[in-house]
Amino acid sequence: MKKMQKQKRHVPPAFLLMTILLMAVALVQVFPFYWMLTFSLKSNADIYGGNIAGLPTTLHFENYVKALTTGKIGVYLKNSILITLSTIVVVALLACMASYALLRMEWKFQKVTFALFLVGYMIPMHATLLPLMKLLGKMGLLNSRLALIFPYIAFGLPFAIYILSGFMNAIPRELEEAACIDGCNIFQIFFRIVMPLLKPAISTIVIFTFLSAWNELMLAMTFINDASKKTLTYGIMSFEGQYAVDWGTVGAGLSIATIPVLIFYLIFAEAFQKGIVAGAVKG
């Protein structure tokens, strides 16, 4: 009894301290973004006048207009969306098909091929930069969106196939057998029976592929020169160089690039977090 009382008296201050600590960390994680939003709406006069961390005195939405039009952030955003979306769709489809053949069907070199795919997860994209540039040059793909889509797909596949292999093994074979008896051919079995069962794995793949393709910088800045084909990562870099002294416009550009992802994240927070953990546990 005494002990319980003691605990009751002791825990709250410790808990209070912990809450303060946790809130402080939360503030540190979020404050830079809050600050970005505030200066995206300020004028230079406001910032140079010493209003660094405060709220804007008047809201300058024209910063956003400038970033989107003359700053071309809108174009970069479109390119990033196109490239990321095609990468995701192709990775998900090809990985599902390949892992079905690799894990369920029966052929001679399936183990070796599976191992070959998994090796890819150890390769950093950096290490392929120069040969890829030469290769894409020969294919005449440099400076096009495909120059990024192909490598992104190639580097998305190993992870996707790994994730799928776990799920694939968990699908009971009886389902496919039943479908077979009902007269389905292999394509019907795959698209009607197997694919729908892989949905949870696919959502993990989508998130993981999204983050890596959307955020990729090194290939994007090496293979693309044309301003009309730049992705957000590289675009933001040149944009910042161009408007360096124009704080409001830079802030607006950064905010435009951040907000869509942020909204997705806040809606699908659980799925995002599950995707990351799944990708890590693999290691």
């Binding site: 960390v25 939360a26 994680q29 979020v30 830079p32 973004f33 983050l211 959307w214 955020n215 910088l217 957000l232 990562t233 590289y234 933001i236 870099m237 950064l254 690039a257 951040t258 992802v261 942020l262 994240y265 927070a269 995002f272 977090q273 990351i276």
Partner: peptide, 11 residues
């Protein structure tokens, strides 16, 4: 806490 990890490194 996880929020900064989803924002691209360039930003």
């Amino acid at each position: 806490y996880f929020l900064p990890a989803i924002v691209s490194t360039v930003i």
